[in-house]
Amino acid sequence: MRYEIERSELWVLRHHPDPAPLPGWLLLDSLRHCSGPVDFSEAEAMDWGRAVRNASLLVKQITGCQRVYAIAFGEGAQHLHLHLIPRHLDEPGSKAWAVADLYRAMDSGDRAATDSAVVVTMVQRCRSLLSTRG
Rank of each mutant, 00 (worst) to 15 (best):
V12Y: 02
D101R: 12
D110V: 10
T114K: 05
C126K: 10
H15A: 12
R32Q: 04
Y3R: 03
I62F: 08
A45P: 00
S116W: 04
I5T: 06
L13S: 01
G49V: 12
A113R: 04
M46H: 12
R104F: 12
W25Y: 15
Q124A: 14
S116C: 11
D39P: 03
H33W: 02
V120C: 09
L129D: 01
P17D: 11
P37Q: 07
G64N: 15
L58E: 14
I62Y: 06
V52C: 12
V119W: 14
S116M: 15
A100R: 02
D29E: 10
K95H: 15
Y3Q: 10
E42D: 14
A100Q: 06
F73Y: 15
S131I: 07
A96S: 14
S8L: 10
D115H: 07
D47F: 04
E42A: 15
E9S: 09
W48S: 13
V99K: 01
L22Q: 03
L57D: 14
V118E: 04
G49P: 03
S8C: 03
A100P: 02
L22G: 02
K60W: 08
Q61N: 14
R53V: 12
S41A: 01
S8V: 05
D39K: 00
H79D: 01
V118K: 03
L27N: 01
T132W: 00
Y69D: 07
M106C: 05
S35K: 13
N54T: 04
L84E: 03
Y103S: 01
P17Q: 07
V119R: 15
A45W: 03
L82P: 08
A55Y: 02
S116I: 04
L13E: 00
G64T: 10
L10C: 03
V123F: 10
A55V: 11
R133Q: 15
R111M: 13
L102S: 08
V38S: 08
R50F: 02
M106G: 08
N54W: 01
M106W: 01
V68H: 07
S128P: 05
S128E: 13
L57Q: 15
C65A: 15
M46I: 10
T132Q: 11
A105C: 09
R7D: 07
Y3L: 09
M122K: 05
G93V: 06
E75N: 15
A100T: 09
C126I: 05
G49D: 11
H88E: 03
D107G: 09
A51C: 06
W97I: 15
K60E: 10
F40P: 08
